[in-house]
Design a protein around this nucleic acid. Sequence first.
DNA 1: CATGCCATTAATCATACGTATGATGTTTGA
DNA 2: TCAAACATCATACGTATGATTAATGGCATG
Lengths: 250, 250
Amino acid sequence: MALLRTRHQDAVDVIAGWIVGGRFAADTALPTEDMIGIQLGVSRTVVREAMRTLVAKGMVTVRRRHGTQVQPVDSWSLFDPQVVAWRLASGLTREFIEDLIHFRLGIEPYAAGLAAANPDFPAEALDLSFRRMATAVEGDGSYHEADLDFHKTIFLGSGNQFLRQLVPLMANALKVSFSLSVISMDTARSSLPMHRDVADAIIGRDPAAARAALTKLIEAAREDILEVLPQITREERVDGEGERLPLARP
Amino acid sequence: MALLRTRHQDAVDVIAGWIVGGRFAADTALPTEDMIGIQLGVSRTVVREAMRTLVAKGMVTVRRRHGTQVQPVDSWSLFDPQVVAWRLASGLTREFIEDLIHFRLGIEPYAAGLAAANPDFPAEALDLSFRRMATAVEGDGSYHEADLDFHKTIFLGSGNQFLRQLVPLMANALKVSFSLSVISMDTARSSLPMHRDVADAIIGRDPAAARAALTKLIEAAREDILEVLPQITREERVDGEGERLPLARP
DNA sequence: CATGCCATTAATCATACGTATGATGTTTGA
DNA sequence: TCAAACATCATACGTATGATTAATGGCATG
């Protein structure tokens, strides 16, 4: 069951890369389908099917005679894992990371509350993830993976389809945190008790406590993240608009 | 700038209708591209491009020799306005409405908090929406529209791209509430002061108060919604015979 | 100012061939 | 003998090509 890279997928990736990379700004036109086909060395069939994919994700619109118009970021499917992947691959902007982190801060405590209220919540899975985190801190196993599973379990166990859908996005938020080296073994060790509190509250079916514990956990981590942010993010491209000011507390 | 109904769009709508309507369950195969083309009266080109759209939204996967496989709901792009529209059009399930309402309850207070902390928040727009709600209660203007704008302004003014993206979903959540006749002129009138509190908190740049006010506002409404829910939602589709809609040829 | 022609570019069709891939059948070697 | 390795086949998607149709904005024309 090997994965086959089709020309279609390649074309989508290339064109999406053009767009997220700012090679074509919002509200400007891409080359005609014929031209793109020639450039990529594929038939117009492939280009058109690639465009349908990008249209479906809100990244472009296609109109007769007008050709293909790039859409502003706000109309993209920002929760789409592929879109997120393209954006991450094209480089981290400060705004993107801030929005991602803040969104997670906003939604995860609530997810924990729902999880605590969900009679079908898989308590064993959460407890297992925690124990894996604990052993990982002692040097055995991947902390990153265990941590991800811990938070994943909360979203998946919330019993809410929209929250479940956020798992890929949250996974990326965590990945970003790790990639920024924000989470060292020291911070991991010190956050262990807070994770324990979260797990206990959820397993103990106490929504309010779960929300509080998770809020506390995240509050502890957010400072570190937003602190190192200005240093590693690239500048915004094209039309140099003013960068937003840092947001205050949630 | 007129909207042209292309065969592609028609095909996407029809096939999506099959899927959300339960005519083809998850993990089952759709007919071959050739067959669908014959059935809809379009060429295989159109069917294939329709499939690329559905693949992009996570509703199906396509593999050589295996054909097109319907995916479970959890892998759909649930935040995609089109997907939401298809689901609403196919009938309201209780789970869908509950998840939608609960998701809104979880995220909107947080959005209000961010809005209050955003120095660029358009205070005038929010105030205007509120005044339109007030006059609508007195019989002048559309309450529905003003209410929608009020909540929209909060999300758009949060300064967070992910929250902005939720506007269509929230609009549908509100639309559902209205369609269930949960919001009468009486409830509207009584919720006016709470809306005022929310606006004041945001305009006054007080995130904590904004969160609290919006939480209170929503708490007041949720009971009504979840109360009438069991009566109006349809049962899960048992699958009668297919009422398929062949597309017309030119 | 209204109107009809025109160039542009996507939309669609019909057809043909390429090619992973699971299923089936066949050979081989211990 | 039997199982593992290998060869063959049918299937449905993947891609290409060329022709035709049809919106649509712009421009020349009245």
